[in-house]
Design a protein around this nucleic acid. Structure first.
Length: 423
RNA sequence: GGAGGAAUGGCAGAGUGGUCGAAUGCGGCAGUCUUGAAAACUGUUGAGGGUCACACCUCCGGGGGUUCGAAUCCCUCUUCCUCCGCCA
């Protein structure tokens, strides 16, 4: 969530910046300012009430010690009213604080100046494109047909076991999937990201820390018996490793990578565009997370983008990079680059990575801070990105690498798969 | 699942009703010494709110209670440890 200090100091600029999200934030920010002032007023009152009580208690103690029980009794009576007052004030304070929090939760992150204006994905800005889109032969198939033809992914079997959106990967399909995971993790480790294996269920505090809660509760599977959530992305457990932490500037930057399955309810659209691997309830993803000093976070974002590019280049997949417009930008992000791979047989682009800088929006919730060189404690910046989301990479490989004789595995993956062709 | 024990600052560990935001040790930081480093010595060292700055307020796992006053007493939840049972 936004830092109160920033709202106090730059309200007008924030309102202007948030217009890029097509949001009129003025009423909300005004509400926050009001509640903030109210909170401070009540707090001040309560503090002085408690100060009175503290000094009275001290006096009473001294009187008892010097044997003046009678005088102490008089003072004791005075405390009754004070205690009543402070109780009332503390109730008021709680109300105001929770109203303030509620209001703050409704305000998304401030878009970075590079974020283009726009209302939907059509307004995203394509900043580069690389890789050859292959000419497919007559009779080339979309990936779900290929999956069936070579018996490497079974969607119906997943339906039997669980339901739609939970495919079963078989044989060389499973092996290719595992190869991709290993390959991604190796690339990330090489680039200095520490590999982490994290829980796939998280508590509410973690969901709250990275911003999935309270606003996006419906997107997660909720295990009510234990009040835990299946993770929608490794971002949640991996970033929460550092919740409530004060790092030294020497420990920055922190770079983590982790592979996890991801679970998304994705209630909403159905139809042709969710066919096959395009959209699933459970999928695998390798994630990279960074924690940075504020002054370095945009350089870090660029590094992450370059890193993902490098992987895609090695996989020889045609891709493009989009800078998300204000209307498509995630709630917690300040600047996001999406990577899309071209799905030749479907003749469309599929999102395979999203790399974002959250600045201090997450860290403010997470209480993820660091002590700078001057010994001052301040909020760190958090970033994350997919490197990469598996199903659509797999779809891209199947469709773009299909030949009449089978699917040619990208060269870099052969050491991981142990085979060169799926036939 | 059954029986006991515990939860205090970065870590270890004292503190059992007022003088405790908290001894002591380690670690961290700064300095003295040294060509430099180590050792030794000296100082400093939790977080949040609030203030121009002080004052002041809150926090000893979470929540509630007793009391003029709670790290300390009571209730409750959570977590961890030991033993037993079950089990990958």
């Amino acid at each position: 969530m936004l830092v109160l200090q920033a709202i106090r100091e730059n309200k007008e600029q924030l309102i202007t910046a948030l217009k890029k999200r097509n949001l009129d934030a003025e009423p909300l920010l005004n509400q926050v300012s009001e509640l903030d002032e109210k909170r401070r007023a009540i707090q001040t009152q309560m503090d002085s009430t408690l100060a009175q009580l503290n000094s009275l208690s001290k006096e009473i103690g001294n009187l008892f010690k010097s044997g003046k029980a009678q005088e102490a009794k008089v003072l004791k009576e005075q405390t009754i009213q004070i205690k009543e007052d402070s109780k009332k004030l503390s109730e008021e304070l709680n109300e105001v604080v929770s109203a303030l929090d509620q209001a703050l939760f409704l305000i998304p992150n401030i878009p970075h100046e590079l974020v283009p204006a726009g209302s939907s994905e059509d307004d995203n800005e394509e900043i580069m494109r690389e890789g050859e889109i292959p000419e497919l032969f007559e009779g080339a198939l979309p990936h779900w047909e290929l999956a069936k033809k070579y018996d490497i992914i079974d969607f119906e079997l997943g339906v039997k076991i669980t339901g739609a959106g939970f495919p079963v990967y078989k044989g060389k399909g499973a092996r290719l999937q595992r190869a991709l995971i290993s390959y991604f993790l190796d690339k990330n480790t090489e680039a200095g990201y520490q590999e982490m294996q994290v829980p796939h269920l998280v508590n509410a505090a973690s969901g709250f820390g990275t911003g999935q809660l309270p606003d996006k509760e419906g997107q997660m599977y909720h295990v009510t018996a234990d009040d835990l959530y299946l993770i929608p992305t490794a971002e949640v457990p991996v970033t929460n490793i550092l919740r409530d932490t004060i790092l030294s500037y020497k420990e920055l930057p922190v770079r983590y990578t982790g592979y996890t399955p991801c679970f998304r309810r994705e209630a909403g659209s159905y139809g042709a565009h969710v066919r096959g691997l395009n959209r699933l309830h459970q999928f695998d993803k390798v994630e990279i997370v960074r924690v940075e000093e504020p002054s370095n976070s945009y350089k870090a974002l660029d590094e992450m983008v370059k890193h993902v590019q490098k992987i895609l280049r090695e996989l020889e997949l045609p891709y493009r990079i989009l800078r998300l417009c204000g209307g498509d930008l995630g709630f917690t992000s300040a600047l996001t680059y999406d990577f899309e791979v071209f799905s030749t047989a479907q003749d469309k682009w599929l999102e395979i990575s999203s790399v974002s800088n959250f600045e201090n929006y997450q860290s403010n919730r997470l209480k993820l801070r660091f002590k700078d060189k001057n010994g001052k404690t301040q909020l760190a910046h958090t970033l994350n990105g997919s490197s990469l989301a598996l199903p659509r990479v797999l779809a891209g490989i199947l469709e773009n690498c299909q030949t009449k004789n089978g699917i040619k595995v990208p060269k870099v993956l052969v050491p991981y798969t142990g085979f060169e062709i799926i036939d």
